[in-house]
Amino acid sequence: MSESANSYNASDITVLYGHEAIRKRPGMYVGSTTERGLHQAVFEVVGRAVNEVQADRATSVDVTLTPGGVSVVDDGPDVPVKAAGDTDASSLELLLTRLPAGWEPLGRNTAVMGLAVLGLCVTNALSSRLTAEVRREGTRWVQQYAHGVPVAPPTAAGPAADRGTTIAFWPDPDIFETVECSFSVLADRFRDLAFLNRCLTISLTDARHPGEPRSVRFRSPAGAQDFVAFLDTPTGSPVHPDIIGFEWEDPRMEGTAEVALRWCTSCEERVHGFANSRPTREGGTHVLGFRDGATNAVNAYVRKRRLRPTAHPDLSPEQICEGLTAIVSLKLDHPWFEGATGSMLGNPTVRPCVAEAVQKHLGNWLDSHPEQAAAVIDRIVQGTPGS
């Protein structure tokens, strides 16, 4: 092979910016071009609206599936449409066309719904068209986009009786294998969001089939305790009627936590972890800390009440968590997501903080509910071979 054939220099490098880079390598931003990637594009838009609620700037999010498209509406304080900073572009246009400077979530009130907090620009770039409507200061502003590029500046399109933002987009069929979202997949994710964020009201409407509309609305005043009750519905009978729930804030892990749990007659362990509303299906330091704390609390209670012979070893985490349904939801200022798909929480300070808090709160509950505690211990011991 000749020397010229092996040559490689700067002239062989193609630099892509903005929407071009996203459209060239969509999997880097939404994971894939399958239905899963399509849903991630939806979550990027919904995530912005949910974060408006988290920041107390909005109260509700409404998502509608339309033929080939999706509409997301929030009642937040809207997005400025005038030129921003030293650019000629409006704040709305910057939001829809520029990637954020960093990939890290922006504080404990940020709901991480996509692979990273990349925002509307990703969905815009992966859509054949997008319409942004901003209702602001009595005026309705509209801007159209095609393949991530603005067709024209924001235009005043009449009066507005309310405030808020509507993002309607049509995923590009030249990029995605399908542009038909799954109603059930989105509904399940939005239900979880409502369980994890008590302040949130979110609805999903399917308007793709005239004459057959369907709609669901989610709100969960009891948060994680409602989540446990929902998960327990199709399983065996609960061992104790109360769902144990507690919340706390710990500056050592720079965040807050909410935990709910209940033992059932089922043999299955179902401990679900979340960090900044993102499911951590591979677990992580918060789930490990929960298991540590629950194990320590139960064994301390058993030893204090002398419920097992002293010669017997302590109950193991596997024995204690059998039949347990639990939600461990953390909201951190700086969550570290690890694993191939970022579905594991890696913050090292989280494990001891969660373990300490769970041991304290669960131990107090066992002490103050002796009848229910007895039922829990009986359930654990009876499920322990050779006990």
Results as ranks from 00 to 15, higher is better:
S2C: 05
S7Q: 15
I13A: 11
T14C: 14
V15G: 11
L16Q: 03
E20W: 00
A21N: 04
I22L: 01
G31Q: 04
G31H: 01
G31E: 03
S32A: 07
E35A: 11
L38R: 05
A41N: 03
E44A: 00
E44Q: 04
V45N: 02
V45P: 00
R48L: 14
A55L: 15
L65F: 10
T66A: 13
V72C: 03
V73D: 11
D78K: 10
D78W: 10
G85H: 13
T97F: 00
L99N: 00
P100N: 04
G102K: 03
L106A: 14
T110Y: 04
T110A: 09
T110F: 04
A116N: 05
L118G: 00
L120P: 09
N124Q: 04
N124T: 10
N124F: 02
A125S: 09
S128G: 06
S128L: 06
E137C: 05
W141F: 05
Y145S: 06
V151G: 13
P159Y: 11
D162W: 07
D162G: 10
R163Y: 08
R163W: 08
R163G: 13
F169H: 03
P171E: 08
P171Q: 07
D172C: 12
I175R: 07
F176D: 08
E177W: 05
T178N: 11
D192G: 04
N197R: 14
R198S: 15
C199K: 15
T201Y: 14
D206I: 01
A207Y: 07
E212W: 06
P213D: 11
S215R: 15
V216N: 07
R219L: 12
R219T: 15
P221Y: 12
Q225E: 10
F227I: 03
F230A: 15
L231V: 14
P238K: 07
P238G: 12
D242A: 12
G245P: 07
D250Q: 01
T256R: 02
A257R: 00
A260T: 03
A260M: 04
W263A: 12
C267Y: 13
V271S: 14
H272W: 06
H272F: 07
G273P: 05
P279V: 02
T280G: 09
T280H: 04
R281F: 14
E282I: 00
E282V: 01
G284A: 12
V287M: 12
V287T: 13
G293V: 01
N296G: 06
V298H: 02
R303T: 08
K304L: 13
L307K: 01
L307E: 10
T310K: 15
A311V: 15
H312I: 11
T325E: 09
I327Y: 09
W336V: 12
F337N: 04
G339V: 01
L345I: 05
R351A: 12
A357Y: 08
A357T: 06
V358K: 09
Q359W: 11
N364F: 08
D367I: 01
D367C: 01
S368W: 02
S368V: 03
P370W: 05
E371C: 10
A374K: 11
D378Y: 10
Q382V: 06
Q382C: 11
G383I: 02
G386Q: 10
S387G: 14
